[in-house]
Simulated assay, not measured.
Amino acid sequence: MEIPAEEPRFFQVEPLEGESLSHFLGRFRRENYLTATQLGKLTGIGAVISRWEKFYLNPFPTQQELGALAAVVEVKVERLIEMLQPLGVTMKPRPIRLCGACYAEVPCHRIEWQFKEKMKCDRHQLRLLTKCTNCETSFPIPADWVQGECPHYFLPFATMAKRQKRC
């Protein structure tokens, strides 16, 4: 008698308000002890996961790709689309930007920070940061934000708000 193979089960990760897809994918992978390559294999979309984590969204994710991801992460396709830039908005994948004051409120990378025309936080009227305020190291991709701090100086992102300039 053959025992049917069970579908893999994963810890569910709820998306945060305004969170970027890169940050969400990193949180999901860490919670489930997966690499980008493993998640790509599970979804059947391969290296696309790694590209999305780096904000390389050209070509833009298809409904089929988002559907495959949604089936694994158990998040609706519509919610995944909210983690991407709206149609007609250009992204700037580098440098990675953040508002320390926003991060202190909700510790996640927001997709709007990577919009090409976005240079300040509309909520706090602060210039977005592109590097650590102490060591000037550029921020890594949000998928790699494990502790929410500079990977070299270990200064928490939330603390950096004190040194953000007003706009």
Rank of each mutant, 00 (worst) to 15 (best):
K54P: 00
Q164P: 01
I49R: 10
I3V: 11
L25R: 00
Q85K: 02
H152V: 14
K162M: 10
G40Q: 11
E19A: 03
K92T: 06
N134T: 14
K76V: 04
P140L: 13
E19V: 04
L126K: 15
L39V: 05
P156H: 12
F157W: 08
P86V: 02
G67L: 09
R29Q: 09
A104T: 09
F24A: 00
A5R: 12
L128T: 07
T43I: 01
P140H: 09
L16M: 11
R123H: 05
G26C: 02
E6I: 06
P86R: 01
F157T: 04
S20H: 05
F157K: 02
V89H: 11
V146K: 11
M83E: 04
Y33H: 13
R29C: 07
N32Y: 00
K131P: 00
Q147L: 14
E14D: 00
R9H: 00
H23L: 00
V75G: 03
Q64R: 09
R127K: 13
L87E: 12
K41R: 09
V146Q: 14
P151G: 05
P15K: 01
F115Y: 15
A36R: 08
G67M: 08
L69Q: 04
A5M: 12
R163H: 09
Q164R: 01
E6Q: 13
K54A: 14
L25V: 02
Q85S: 06
F154T: 13
P95M: 11
P95Q: 04
G148F: 08
E136W: 00
F55M: 12
D122V: 08
Y103W: 13
A104P: 11
I111E: 08
Y103R: 06
L69P: 00
E17H: 02
K118A: 11
E149R: 10
L66S: 06
K120E: 12
M91N: 08
M83G: 05
R9F: 01
C121T: 13
H124N: 14
P86I: 03
Q125N: 08
F157R: 04
